[in-house]
Each structure stands twice: as C-alpha cells, then as structure tokens.
Design a protein around this nucleic acid. Sequence first.
DNA 1: CGGCTTTGACCTGCGC
DNA 2: GCGCAGGTCAAAGCCG
Length: 353
Amino acid sequence: MAEWGLQAIIGPNDQYDESHHHQQQQHPHHYQHDDCFGSIDIKKEYDQALLFYFPDHLYDDHHRPVDHEHEHDHATTSTMEPVVTDELDQLYKPFYPDPPANASDIHIIHQNYLDPDKEIQQFQDQEQEIKKFSGSSSNTSQLAPKLKKRKNQQKRVVVQVTAAGLSSDPWAWRKYGQKPIKGSIYPRSYYRCSSSKACLARRQVEQSCTDSSIYILTYTADHNHPQPTRRNSLAGINRSRFKATPKSPTNHDVGKPVTKSKASPFHSSPPTISASSIEDEILQQSNIKEETLFYNKCVNIDQGHTMIPRVNDEDYMVFNDDFFEGLEDLAGYKMESSSYNYSSTNQFPHVFC
DNA sequence: CGGCTTTGACCTGCGC
DNA sequence: GCGCAGGTCAAAGCCG
C-alpha cells in the first residue's frame, strides 16, 4: 500500500490539528477532511474530482486546458459552467467544516492511477488479453492469474456516497465476496462487473466507520465494454432478503457492526447484513432517481460521441452513435445538449422500471 | 435454468 | 521465512 494514493485515505489516523482550521479559514476551497481513513487534501481532491467528472470541461477536444474565463462563445460551456460549479460544491459539501443539510450523495474522495507509461501499458495488456479471448469460449478463470497485478499498481477511484447514492452507477455488479476489515466495524463487500466475464472492473463497498450513513466505494480497473443499457438481470437483487430463511439476516441487522468470530481464520461471515443487502433495499427505493442522476453526471454529448469520464483525461472511453442510441433507448427520448444541465428541474426521464 | 448472494477456504502481497 | 490481512474462488442454496 506504500505507493498508491489510497494511502492518503486508509492510512493511519491523523490528528486533526489546529493548522487545519487555519488552512480552512484562509482558503475556502482548501479543506482537510479527517476521519478514520486519515487526512485528505480536499483542494487537491477537488481538482481531481473536477477532472474525473468533467474532463471535457477542463480540456478541449485536443486535451488542451480550457480557459473558461475567455471562452464564453461556446454555448455548451457557457451554459454548463455554473452547473458544474454548483455540482462540485455539492460534491464536497460534506468535507466543509459545517456541511449544509442538502449534501450531495456522491463524493469522490480519492483517485490514484499509474504513471502514463504504466497506464498505457496496462491498457494495452488488457486490450490484448481481451482480443485474445473474446473470440473463443475460453475459460476466463484460467486467464485470471495472468491478469493479476500488484494491488498497489492498480488504478483506483474512491467515491464516498450516502446510502441513497449507493446504487448510483448503472453498471451491473455481481458480489463475489465479503470480508471484515481490520480497523473497521463494518465488512467490505467485493463486486465485479457482471456484464462481461472478461471485464476487470471491480467495486468495493464498505461503510464508513465514523458515519454509518456514508459508504466508501472503491472502483478498481476499467470496464472494457460499453455501459449496459440496463442491468443484466434482476434475479437476486429484487428478492426479499428479509424472509425468515436460515441464512438471511433480519431487518434488525441493518447496519449492525461486525462481531468477530473465531470460527474462521478470517473472521468472515458475521451475522450482519451485507452492504449489498442495504444497497438492494435502497435500490428499490431510489434506483430510478440515482441512475438518472449518475447518467446525467457522466454522459456528455460531444460531436456525436458519448464520453464516459475516466480517471485520465486522455483516456476516455469514446462510444459511437450506436452506443449512444442505446442510451437514448434507455432514456426513451432523444437527448439534446441542453440535457447536460442536470439540475433538479431537468432530470433524466424515469425509465428504469 | 440462469444469475444472484452467502460463506468457508484458499491465494497473494507485504511487513517484520 | 512467517504471519497477518486483504482479495478471490467456488460450492451451495435461493429466487424469479
């Protein structure tokens, strides 16, 4: 864990000293966030989040920095700028000294990525492996060991969300494990992308140890396929997990901390509801709203292409019009550039029933 | 029947 | 080399 940026989050606790207060008073957007994950330079993360969510806003088509102060003739940009500013204010409200009541559900708290050379190499390796196996019915599990990389070299994006924001990404995830984590009373759930067996994308979900209403999402690797127009299957995710089955936890177990058992060397499988269970319940309540929000945040129309923001500004996933039509199908209407304004009064249509 | 979660076992990275 | 902790596998069972 020595090299990757996540260290800033999950490293040893930093004491919240007075200098942080001075820093915050002097620089309204330079906040230091401390919790059980350690200390974070919010200004830096703010910039990175801006890049992650709105890379096209910071860079033009040629990946050159955009000077918005002198660029007001571009309709989309001039329209979007206040929205972007408001959105990022929302994103970082929980890190402010006194968070407002209407804090956003999604907060990027850290990303880390390889240096450009390694990033490109990893992408090429990944692409090569996909090409190698995509045409056959090869068992991907045999491929898995080859694709494994040192954990601290993997690209990661850490997002802090509220409970309502847990289901806010439209990818289809399949849970493959859950482990109690040292230093946290809540277990961590492991998900992989279920859209494609060759997809290396991973997601980890864990509850914040300081605020049980906050969830830490860690995304590892990238999807190597277009975003699905709808989640793979509802089998399993819509089932009632609160029926009285021997293994199923009860409703009272929601948010219950892990109690370590000596039955397993890993103290696994405590009688607590998993993050996925919480997520499923929330998903039923807010799936439409959150997928809508996430879609509106991530999708940008740019000259006939749809760009999904990725960690590197130079490393977009650019999809053709076919994919975009798929999204339109999902939306149920023809997107217009004005729809990028994802204000509360201009939400994505609710078609995820 | 396919896809899901659960969960014990196993694998791997890393610090000492 | 050893042990710990995190990450993954895979069998079992559930659900639509």
